Structures are given as C-alpha cells and as structure tokens.
Simulated assay, not measured.
Amino acid sequence: MSALVLREDRDGLCTLTLNRPDKMNALTVQMFLELHDHVAALEQQTESIGAVLLRGAGRCFSAGNDLHDIAAGRPLPMPYLQARTIDRLARLPQPVITAVHAHCYTGALELALAGDIIVASASAKFADTHAKWALTPLWGMSQRLPRRVGQARAREIMLLGRTYSGVQAAGMGLANFCYPDTEFDAQVEALARELLAGSWFSHRANKRLLLETDGLPLDAGLAHEVFRNAGKGPDMQERIAAFGKK
C-alpha cells in the first residue's frame, strides 16, 4: 500500500504531499494518521529542517473530507485525531507554507489554515461547505478563519458556502500570494527558498512569539516580547560578518 502522505526533504525544506490523486486527495482517517506521524517527527528536527511545505498530488490540493469515510463511521485511533493533527501542524517550530492548487474545500480548508503562509494558484477554489452537509467545523475553522480574514468575511464564507478563486482568496487575505497556474510550482519553490535564506532561529522565535502572544492585551504582549524573548540567535555574528564582507 502506497503512503497517503509523502515526505521529501531537500536542502532544509520538507515537502509533505497529500497522496490520493485518484480521489482528489480526499481526507481520510489513515491520511491524518500518517500526517500526524510526520508532524511529530518534524517537531524534533529543527536543526535539519527549516521550513515545511504542504501540498497535494495530482489535480488539486484536496477536495475535503472523504464523505465515504465519514459515512463508514470508522472509530478514531485517538480522540480528535484530525483537530489535534492540524493544531500540531500549525504549532510546528518551523514555518509552514500551504500551497493550494485547484480544489480546497471544507476540511481541506481547515487543513490549509494551519499554514503560516498560504499560496494559491489562479485556478484555486476555496470553499467551506459544512452547511451543505449539515456539519459544523471541528478542526479549527471557526477560530483560524476569522483570525486570517476577519469576522465579517469568515461569516460570509461559512454561512453562504460560496467558492472563491485564488485571486479572490489573495484579495481577502485568505491567501498571501496568488500565482499563475503555469508559474505556480516555480514560484512556490522560490518562496520556500527565500524563506529558508533567513535565520532559522529567527523564524522559530518569531513564530513562537506570534503564537504565545495571540489574544493578549497590548501591554502584556509587549512585555512578553521584551522579557521572554532571546532577541538574538547563534547565527547573528556569522550573518553580520557575511554582510560586512559584501
């Protein structure tokens, strides 16, 4: 049986690929189990992996939760497996890029929202269709979506169930960037390499600061930044010296 989530490491970048292309990468319990294992491993690999790229194989990122898997009622091997996996992915020490092409519906959107940076192809299609199936989000949509696009837009997306293009997603802040389909892979690679060129220490520290201060009052957040933050990393002197030689 082939892996449902593929992992490839190259020059500090770990690419995790949803691998059910014949089923439009519809999300199953087994897929989340494999993704959970990869995320657990990545938490311990901060010295060798500086960033994580999540994407889908074949025609799309993911069409969402596999409705046949839901109907089968397969018991979860651990409580709240999907929500825990997505939350763990979102809280990885390394920055996470989600690359969305074509379909990204409902559960897939909840998964995509774990990314620190979301990039979309022009032909991407984002939607939340929970209401179509008499479902409600259980994997983080109600919290991560409004934090990314604002309350008013999140209500629109969740209540109306409309589909939004990659261009529209970028316009509302759901995606950080939208690239033409013909340039998508090259642009995603270039973005990942641009990210990796920065200090991995700074990336981890900045991400931790943002997570730890989310929701704090301004004064508390400022105090956290000043008094609970290293401020400089082990590669600072090396980077400054390299700059001075230019």
Rank of each mutant, 00 (worst) to 15 (best):
E8L: 14
L18G: 01
N19C: 13
R20F: 13
D22S: 15
V29A: 02
M31E: 01
E34Q: 05
L35G: 00
L35Y: 01
L35M: 06
D37A: 15
D37G: 11
Q45V: 06
T46M: 06
L53S: 03
L54G: 00
A57Q: 04
G64R: 01
D66K: 01
L67Y: 07
D69C: 11
I70L: 15
P79C: 09
L81N: 03
A83K: 05
A83C: 07
I86M: 02
L92K: 00
P95L: 08
V96L: 05
A99V: 06
H101N: 15
H101Y: 14
A102N: 11
T106I: 04
G107Q: 02
L113K: 01
G115L: 09
D116A: 02
A124K: 06
A124F: 08
A127R: 03
D128Y: 03
D128E: 03
T129E: 03
K132W: 08
A134N: 12
L135S: 13
L138E: 09
S142N: 11
V149T: 01
G150M: 05
Q151R: 12
R153I: 14
R153V: 13
A154K: 01
L159N: 07
S165M: 09
S165L: 06
G166R: 01
L174K: 00
F177E: 06
F177Y: 13
E183W: 14
F184C: 05
A186W: 05
E189D: 15
E189Q: 15
L191R: 03
E194T: 14
E194P: 04
L195D: 03
A197H: 11
S202L: 14
R204V: 11
R204C: 12
L210P: 00
L216N: 07
L218E: 10
L218P: 02
D219W: 07
A220L: 12
A220K: 11
L222A: 13
E225I: 07
E225L: 13
V226F: 08
R228L: 14
N229R: 05
A230F: 02
K232A: 15
D235Y: 12
D235E: 13
E238M: 15
R239Y: 13
I240N: 05
A241D: 12
A242Q: 10
F243H: 11
K246N: 13
